[in-house]
């Protein structure tokens, strides 16, 4: 379904989505974050990029997976704590972040599937927004098979055309969402269609950064496990883990128990994001650590994304959002690292 929605009418659409929890970009202390939106008039699609990707709504940073309790005499009780059954919609999803969801899908869908992730994913409608201007100077989506108007992982893509949006839905979930307020949408004119094409074309040209010949790099990486390259590249790394924490495709997690009361025992098993950039990620309780230094951990980050994931899931585990580049405190730049791989002797 392809329609036109004026910016003025945009809040009316949202007001009609009464049965949905609506999420969208919200500005807090000068930073943009996806948050639950109560007041439709507050939903502002005029944003640069959010600190975290909307992955956090489907795969929260901390999530209770089991509740347990154990009274002195009697057997322990363990209950699954599945996410609430709700209908969610996220507005303003960047195409790279939506593509990232298709990658985490591969991991969590693979048998045996992960109920928690899959329930949230299936009950969430993703409404994307074309990046008419790149939201970050480090965007490089076009090097990874994406584009500022890519539709993978999206139910709807909205593209700004001056005072209106071109709204295109590709899935049943998307069409249903548009039908919730059918009277606010108008049919696009031939000019609108032409303008859309033009905006999409222009948007690609505005992506300034790129990695060339990625498949060559992937091949080269296969022989670089033992290379001194990783020592050189990781020299300045602070092991802060920001690069993975902000990444829309990183899916690694930890599972641990939190005790709420000790007698009778009551608590929760929680899963939290974890990162290959921390030493404890792989350290055995004996103290032995197969990945003992930052060099082996940078290598893991690059090889997971550009070699292992390609072998296992036939895709790069990176969509070019540029967050790890913009936010690394010591300017480790994944594009530069990849480009250097290509020329490394």
């Amino acid at each position: 379904m392809e329609k036109i929605l004026t910016k003025k009418e945009f809040p009316s659409w949202i007001k009609n989505l009464k049965s949905f929890n609506v999420y969208g970009p919200v500005k807090k202390d000068a930073l943009w974050e996806y948050e639950r939106i109560q007041d439709p008039d507050k939903l502002d699609l005029n944003f640069k990029n959010t600190v975290l990707s909307p992955k956090k709504i489907i795969f929260p940073q901390r999530e209770v997976i089991l509740d347990f309790n154990h009274k002195k005499k009697g057997k322990p009780e363990i209950q699954e704590a599945l996410p609430e059954e709700t209908k969610n919609v996220i507005f303003g999803v960047r195409p790279c972040d939506a593509r990232a969801l298709t990658l985490t899908d591969k991991v969590f869908e693979e048998e045996p599937g992960d109920k928690y992730y899959l329930r949230r994913r299936h009950q969430t409608v993703t409404v994307g927004l074309t990046c008419s201007d790149p939201p970050s100077e480090n965007c490089f989506c076009t090097s990874l098979g994406g584009s500022p108007h890519s539709t993978e992982g999206l139910d709807i893509l909205m593209t700004e055309l001056n005072h209106k949006y071109y709204v295109h839905s590709f899935t049943d979930k998307g069409r249903e969402l548009m039908k919730a307020a059918s009277d606010v949408f108008k049919n696009p004119s031939e000019k609108d269609k032409k303008d859309l094409k033009q905006v999409h074309k222009e948007s690609e040209k505005k992506i300034k950064r790129q990695v060339k010949e990625l498949s060559k790099i992937t091949d080269k990486l296969k022989g670089m496990f033992d290379s001194p390259f990783w020592d050189e590249e990781s020299m300045s790394c602070l092991k802060c883990g920001i690069c993975t924490y902000l990444c829309p495709t990183c899916h690694c997690f930890d599972i641990s128990d939190e005790v709420l009361s000790s007698s009778p025992l009551k608590g929760q098993r929680v899963r939290t994001w974890d990162t290959c950039q921390f030493p404890y990620f792989t350290m055995h309780s004996s103290g032995h650590n197969p990945r003992p230094d930052k060099s082996s951990r940078l290598r893991q980050r690059i090889l997971h994304k550009f070699s292992y994931f390609v072998d296992n899931y036939d895709d790069y585990q990176c969509t070019g959002c540029g967050r790890c580049i913009s936010k690394c405190p010591v300017d480790i730049d994944i594009i530069e690292v990849l480009e250097k791989v290509k020329d490394y002797e």
Partner: peptide, 19 residues
């Protein structure tokens, strides 16, 4: 091989050797 494990099913990303 013993690598540190959390999920046991290839999702938590922790126990890999290469791919």
């Amino acid at each position: 091989v013993e690598n540190k494990m959390k999920c046991g099913i290839g999702k938590c990303g922790r126990c890999n050797i290469g791919k």
